[in-house]
Computed example of a mutant assay.
Amino acid sequence: MVTAVTLGFGSGGTVVSTAQAAEVEGPKVKWLLSTWGKRRGIMEGMESFSEQIAEATDGNFEVSLQYGGVLSDPKENLDGLKIGAFEAAMFCPLYHPSKTPAITGLDLPFLPITDLETRAKVHEAYLHNPVVLEELARWNAYPLMSALMPNYEVMGKGEAPQSIEDWEGLRLSAGGGIGDLMKSIGAIPTAVPAPEMYQSLERGVINGAAFPYTYAFAAYKLHELADWRTEKSSLGSLTCVLVASKQAYEALPPQYQELIDRVKPGAYKHQIDTYTAIDEKNEKLFEEEGLKKVRFSEEDVEQIMDKAVQPSWDAWVAARNAEGLDGQALLDEILALAKEANTN
């Protein structure tokens, strides 16, 4: 069953903010949100969320983003919520799939989610699926919003692959489902830490890397070495979720809970706009470097679907069934939500 959640997307596919400028009266509340790294694209939605909340309440409700892993190791953020160490956190199911197996369906390759607006709609609805809510509740967690990540693409050095056969033997830094996907077409996936990516590509240790497009490639300057990059390949994306302590959320006065729902569309819009501006700048860089664009043909896509995608989907369904979940129902909902989002 498709879970209906209104996000406030306009007819043109852009997220429309519904947050009001009027002050929301209420008590003093401060949440600490545990995350890692520095401020970056993936956190822009939550930065906007925090700013809107503070502005609407005149600073009475504060969501303080704690970067650098100062509150918890990234892999232990759900554990921290469970014991009440902080009030909110970001986590990525890929880091510990067994903790939130239902959410890992959003990481499957070749889902029909081609842009960030569609991803926001699908994630926002699926995160409120009763199965997902129950899964999160076991960790004392309640979904605030998705930390949107763009689709992954591959950027590489050397001769650009023109067909499925040309991927044979290419050494690519690609993990998770994307790594499995690339392996199915003959590539050799390997795990290279992001800070070592440039040197590995320069020395020929790898032929290419799968990264969120475009910002991650530019951030690590891989475009300076690369000769080609894939385009609109729908490899998939990494899901990361911003959650609140269920106990802390339920303790909020009703007007603050309502405010959270009101500011989310504007937060998603800010994040998407940030990515769009970054992409425009980076695309110019890639053009200036003369990077060739590589697209999978329809025949290639059919082969990939048969050889890798459908088997990976089937394996995911079987794994969830073995855990006592209805894997097919969960996958069907994701696909139905994507279809609905793509037609609206």
Results as ranks from 00 to 15, higher is better:
39 R>Y: 04
39 R>I: 02
66 Q>P: 02
57 T>C: 09
79 D>E: 14
38 K>R: 13
68 G>F: 07
13 G>K: 00
17 S>W: 03
79 D>M: 11
29 V>N: 10
81 L>H: 08
65 L>A: 04
71 L>H: 07
67 Y>H: 14
74 P>K: 12
90 M>A: 15
57 T>R: 13
60 N>G: 07
12 G>Q: 09
31 W>L: 03
31 W>H: 03
49 F>W: 11
16 V>L: 02
43 M>I: 05
72 S>R: 04
73 D>W: 04
70 V>S: 14
73 D>C: 00
66 Q>F: 00
48 S>V: 05
33 L>D: 04
22 A>L: 09
40 R>D: 13
12 G>A: 05
57 T>G: 09
88 A>S: 12
79 D>L: 12
34 S>R: 04
25 E>S: 15
58 D>Y: 09
38 K>F: 11
94 L>H: 12
68 G>P: 10
13 G>Y: 03
30 K>C: 03
53 I>E: 00
97 P>S: 03
48 S>G: 11
96 H>T: 12
20 Q>G: 07
52 Q>M: 13
87 E>W: 04
34 S>L: 04
13 G>I: 02
25 E>C: 08
32 L>C: 08
30 K>T: 14
62 E>H: 09
27 P>Q: 06
83 I>G: 00
48 S>E: 15
67 Y>T: 05
10 G>F: 01
58 D>K: 15
51 E>P: 10
16 V>Y: 01
91 F>S: 05
94 L>W: 14
72 S>V: 02
54 A>S: 15
79 D>Q: 13
79 D>K: 08
81 L>G: 04
78 L>P: 12
21 A>D: 09
85 A>V: 02
39 R>L: 07
93 P>D: 03
30 K>W: 03
96 H>A: 14
90 M>L: 15
39 R>C: 04
93 P>A: 04
51 E>G: 08
51 E>Y: 09
39 R>S: 12
54 A>H: 04
78 L>G: 06
47 E>K: 05
51 E>T: 11
89 A>E: 05
71 L>Y: 02
18 T>F: 06
69 G>F: 03
59 G>N: 09
45 G>C: 05
14 T>A: 14
40 R>L: 10
19 A>M: 07
40 R>W: 10
65 L>H: 06
70 V>Y: 07
71 L>V: 01
44 E>V: 00
55 E>A: 15
25 E>D: 09
64 S>T: 12
81 L>S: 05
58 D>A: 14
75 K>T: 04
58 D>V: 07
40 R>K: 12
10 G>E: 00
51 E>D: 15
92 C>S: 15
66 Q>K: 11
85 A>I: 00
